[in-house]
Design a protein around this nucleic acid. Structure first.
Lengths: 196, 196
DNA sequence: ATAAAACATGAATACTGATTCATATTTCAA
DNA sequence: TTGAAATATGAATCAGTATTCATGTTTTAT
């Protein structure tokens, strides 16, 4: 029926979740195009048609995963940052929390990045909204004298760029590295710059 | 014949180039999956089958475009950096040259980013090799006292992350912004850090 | 207990688009 | 000039897979 209706029974709720997690794993590993609905339902141990009871299309699950990632990342970073005594400490804590999250949910992270090519609106919305909130924090911190003055929006995007790229390189590609070391080095640069 | 042989006549050389440029534009705009061979050859004003005289598959043109981007970026950045008096000036010049290049060849840039999902080996090779050369520069500059000491590899990836993300946000999404301003703000952060 | 609503199934449908191929045309070395 | 090699053509082939649907099974409200 391609209803994408929310399930009304316990069984339904569980099935939908099964399929969502299978989609996360399958699409995360194989990529959006290569992952077929059959692959997803096979992994979820359900029949092919069951997929369409809960999702109206492949794009649809994908979008839901991107949304989910948005909420999770925001939650994880926000929580990590709450008890930081100042903005610079918050930056370090936020970066570390983000990289840990990438390590914990690599598939979800890859999906968000692929969203750029599958559902660019969702991708833009995700990062633009994140950047906006981020810039507010940076701006306030600068006003409070906790940061050197500067364009908060450009800074927000630059800092997100650092986090994204380090996550890809040192967590997705090579997860044996010591995250703490990466965070320390990157943070030193963020705090003090490269000038001697 | 799916030979992917290099052409032997002037006409052949010109045709191959036509198709390559059409592939750059078409794949760059629509993305790899959405861009069909028919779209590409239509744009190149050739017959569908002609494509397979010069390229063995869609992946094949794609890979060539990624390679091409690698050479061009390296060339552009290297040249921009040659007559910088010191490493910090080189960073600024390199960032500006990169953003200008993204503005000049947005399709090529999008293709490289999509390579992560289409031909991840080519993608990894491209960035790993770039990062390696970059890290050498940073390392030597630090040894010469032009930069504060620090992990050159992490720095290289962080700096590449800044460039990539700013390129996406301020050039691909919103090319009306003033590139010089973006470069100045980002560079100030790279040089001096965020600490007050 | 029972019927209506939810949910599950997987074979069949439908469509897209990559790749091939038999056939023409053009180029170029001898 | 000429014919062998290169190049051009686009209809036909072929494979994959997203989505539907007719038919069962399970759950839940009464």
């Amino acid at each position: 029926m391609a209803t994408n209706a929310y399930p009304r029974t316990k069984r339904g709720i569980a099935r939908r979740e099964q399929i969502l997690r299978a989609a996360e794993a399958t699409i995360g590993e194989q990529g959006f195009s290569a992952a077929s609905i059959a692959d997803i339902t096979r992994q979820a141990k359900t029949a092919l048609g069951t997929f369409y009871i809960y999702f109206s299309s492949k794009e649809d699950v994908f979008r839901e995963l991107v949304l989910e990632m948005g909420q999770l990342t925001r939650g994880v970073v926000t929580e990590a940052v709450t008890d930081a005594p100042n903005r610079l400490d918050a930056e370090r804590a936020g970066l570390k929390a983000f990289l840990r999250f990438v390590a914990a949910r690599p598939s979800l992270y890859r999906i968000v990045e692929e969203a750029r090519f599958i559902d660019s609106e969702a991708y833009k919305a995700y990062f633009t909204s994140f950047a906006k909130a981020y810039a507010v924090q940076l701006s306030e911190a600068a006003a409070a004298g906790e940061l050197r003055p500067g364009d908060a929006e450009v800074r927000a995007w630059a800092l997100m760029g650092i986090a994204k790229t380090l996550g890809e390189r040192y967590v997705l590609w090579d997860d044996t590295s010591d995250i703490d070391h990466i965070v320390d080095e990157a943070f030193a640069m963020i705090r003090d710059g490269l000038a001697p």
